[in-house]
Design a protein around this nucleic acid. Sequence first.
DNA 1: CGGCGGCTTGACACAGCTCAACGTCTGTGG
DNA 2: CCACAGACGTTGAGCTGTGTCAAGCCGCCG
Lengths: 239, 239
Amino acid sequence: MIEPLIANLRARDTVSAREAQLLQSIIVRQRRFATDEDLVTEGSRPPYSTLLLDGIAARYRIVENGKRQITALHIAGDFVDLHAFPLKTMDHGIVALSPCLVAFADHGDLTRISENEPHLTRLLWLLTVIDGAIHREWIVAMGRRSKKSHLAHLFCELFARLKVVGRVSDDSFSFPLTQQELADALGISLVHLNKTLRLLRNENALQWTQRTVTVLNWERLEQIAEFDPGYLNLHVEPR
Amino acid sequence: MIEPLIANLRARDTVSAREAQLLQSIIVRQRRFATDEDLVTEGSRPPYSTLLLDGIAARYRIVENGKRQITALHIAGDFVDLHAFPLKTMDHGIVALSPCLVAFADHGDLTRISENEPHLTRLLWLLTVIDGAIHREWIVAMGRRSKKSHLAHLFCELFARLKVVGRVSDDSFSFPLTQQELADALGISLVHLNKTLRLLRNENALQWTQRTVTVLNWERLEQIAEFDPGYLNLHVEPR
DNA sequence: CGGCGGCTTGACACAGCTCAACGTCTGTGG
DNA sequence: CCACAGACGTTGAGCTGTGTCAAGCCGCCG
């Protein structure tokens, strides 16, 4: 059941059968959320962390003028609020952008892991710092790339991450977001997002129909995005 | 010598004398860097992490058109590349924006802490997730705030963080950056940064002369920024 | 079949960029 | 101690990117 998490970890380091077993044993209470439902609300202090097993979710903040900024997109295998284990309080909400299947790890159990399983602890720590690396990449894209490049970059990133957890087939992946949600992730208006999408479509770089994205020309997309997957740390080494 | 780090930690949890001592013992080899010198270079794999003891440093990335984006500003007490302990490879550079004094913690010693000191490990983990929280706040500011509000927010954040490590007196702090560097942090052009600064000056919110920032009207600045320091996690609780 | 949510497009306004010129400060060498 | 060079800051003009508003379209679901 926690295969995507194990896939995420095994893309970065070896994980013993015993460690995988241990993780399995503390991730419990499977639950479904509907589209637009909050998995976690801003300001809450959940005594557990949430592992996404299927679907797409987003971390977001609403600012005072009512605008929303999405700060991260999450897919199967992502521990969406693992950072709340050291942090305790959620400084943002997490919403399901599609139907989501999740399971939970109690913070008490995570504390026990941190007391007895140093290697596993470092792997969980690793997951949170990769989140940070992705945040930095988003900052760079928002600040210093064209919107076209930024959008292409986001698709490249999702493609690479979804591949790791086996959610890509025939260069396609399920992507049931609305354009407004994508606009909120890039920090631009809906209208401008729509026009930016057309730029990518005009280059025959990708297609997005029936809630499915198909990469038509990976080289072109990668080049528009100036995409370098290094920040995702997709190579096995001792951590 | 590592007082600012201890101040940072004690603003978030209790740290025993023994733990402080232990940290002290692994943070070694003090060194100075001149302005514009790289503390850490992109792509390197340092076998140690760098604690900033004095000065201001920035994480940055250069994109292909030659533009630079600063993704984080660091001050005394910040472990500027602690995330490279789990990550191993630096996906960005870190540059001194003023003369900097630093010291180093070998990754071997950090591994030993992760094996024997679960609480201290969680505290170090905490520092990296607070970095992540700051990144998210920057994403929100870049995407959904006006530039004036974004700039005010950055000053509010620095003010709050510098206070924790005792670098604020009389509502003033040393801030020897150039306007180009600030522009690179906000992701805007130098000219526009200059004009945005004037907006804050016109409101008598703050003053920035002789490499020193003085907050003239904290309430107004906070209000322009819609600043809520929650994300900095400046309260003591068991982690 | 009708209504609604989401997508698309065009017109226009304005925020932010680039270019270019000029002002100001500081450190250095004569 | 002064003169100067170079780096940094300031300002204006004109152009481009992005936002807002508004209308129309498409496709799905009740």
